[in-house]
C-alpha cells in the first residue's frame, strides 16, 4: 500500500476502511499468539496509557471547570444552579469524557504508535523480528492494540473524575453552590448503568478499539520513508477524529 493516487476520495476511503477491517481480523487472529508477549503489552500500556495521564488529567480538570462555569451562568437564570452537579456529571459521563479522552488519546498516543511502527518498518526492525522468528503482528501490533483498548476506559475514568472535580471546584468552591446539593442532585440523577457504564466502559472501549486500530494500521502500512511516516501520522489523527465523532453519534443513538 504505497502512496495511492487521489483519484477518488470515496473509493480511497472505502479501500482504507476495508483494508483496516482485514487488518483487524489479522490482529484478532494473532491475539492468542501474542499472549506470550504479555510483558510487551504491559510495556505498551505504560507508553500509551500511563504516559497519557498528564494530558488527560489536565484536560479533564479544565473541561470540568469550564462546564461548571458555563452551567452556573446559564442555570442561575432559572435559579437552578443546584442542578449543575447533575449536568456536569451527565455531560461528562455521556459525551465529554469518552469523546474528549478519545480525541486526546488519538493525538497523544495514536500518533506515537503510528510513528513508532512506521519507523520500525522503515528501519527494517519489523523484518528483523521476522528473521528472529518473532511474529511482528503478535509482538508489535497486537500489544499496542490491546494496550490502547485497555488504556482508553481507564483514561476515560480518570478524565471523568477530574472533570467532576473541576466542576465541583468552580461550582461549589468558587461560586458557592451548596456542596451537599451538588452531590445529592448528582447521586440522585446519575445512573450507574445508563451513564457510567455506557459512557466510560461501552463508549470508550469502542473508541479505544477504533483509535488503536487506526493507529496500528496506519503505522503498519506506512510507506517506509520519512514522508510516509509523517503522512501516516497525520492520517491517524484525521481518521481517528472522524471515526470517534461518527461512532459517538451511532453509539449514542443505540445506547439511548
Amino acid at each position: 500500500m504505497s502512496a495511492q493516487p487521489r483519484r477518488n476520495v470515496v473509493t480511497n476511503a472505502l479501500a482504507q476502511i476495508g483494508e483496516a477491517g482485514l487488518f483487524l481480523l489479522t490482529l484478532l487472529a494473532a491475539v492468542p499468539r501474542s499472549l506470550r508477549h504479555v510483558r510487551e503489552t504491559v510495556r505498551q500500556l505504560w507508553f500509551v496509557g500511563a504516559m497519557s495521564l498528564t494530558i488527560i488529567m489536565v484536560c479533564g480538570l479544565f473541561v470540568g471547570m469550564v462546564l461548571g462555569l458555563q452551567l452556573y451562568y446559564v442555570l442561575s437564570i432559572f435559579g437552578g444552579t443546584a442542578a449543575s452537579g447533575t449536568v456536569v456529571a451527565i455531560a461528562i459521563y455521556r459525551e465529554l469524557g469518552p469523546v474528549v479522552t478519545a480525541l486526546l488519546f488519538a493525538g497523544r498516543a495514536g500518533t506515537s504508535v503510528t510513528a513508532e511502527i512506521g519507523l520500525m518498518r522503515a528501519t527494517d526492525q519489523l523484518a528483523a523480528m521476522e528473521m528472529m522468528a518473532v511474529d511482528p503482528i503478535a509482538y508489535v501490533a497486537v500489544p499496542r492494540y490491546l494496550a490502547g483498548l485497555i488504556a482508553m476506559p481507564l483514561l476515560c475514568a480518570v478524565f471523568c473524575a477530574l472533570g467532576i472535580f473541576g466542576g465541583h471546584l468552580v461550582g461549589v468552591t468558587w461560586l458557592g453552590i451548596d456542596n451537599g446539593t451538588f452531590w445529592s442532585n448528582m447521586t440522585a440523577t446519575v445512573d450507574v448503568w445508563k451513564d457510567v457504564v455506557n459512557g466510560i466502559l461501552v463508549k470508550s472501549l469502542a473508541f479505544g478499539a477504533v483509535v488503536s486500530l487506526i493507529a496500528v494500521y496506519q503505522g503498519y502500512t506506512t510507506p517506509p520513508t520519512s514522508e510516509g511516516v509523517a503522512y501516516a501520522t497525520t492520517r491517524t489523527v484525521v481518521a481517528s477524529s472522524i471515526a470517534i465523532l461518527a461512532l459517538d453519534f451511532v453509539l449514542t443513538a443505540f445506547l439511548m
Binding site: 520500525m120 528501519t123 527494517d124 526492525q125 528473521m131 528472529m132 522468528a133
Partner: peptide, 15 residues
C-alpha cells in the same frame, strides 16, 4: 529461522 542469523544492511536494532 531460529537457526539462521541475518545481518541487515542497516543493522535493524530495536530502538
Amino acid at each position: 529461522r531460529e537457526k539462521i542469523g541475518y545481518l541487515f544492511q542497516n543493522s535493524a536494532l530495536l530502538t
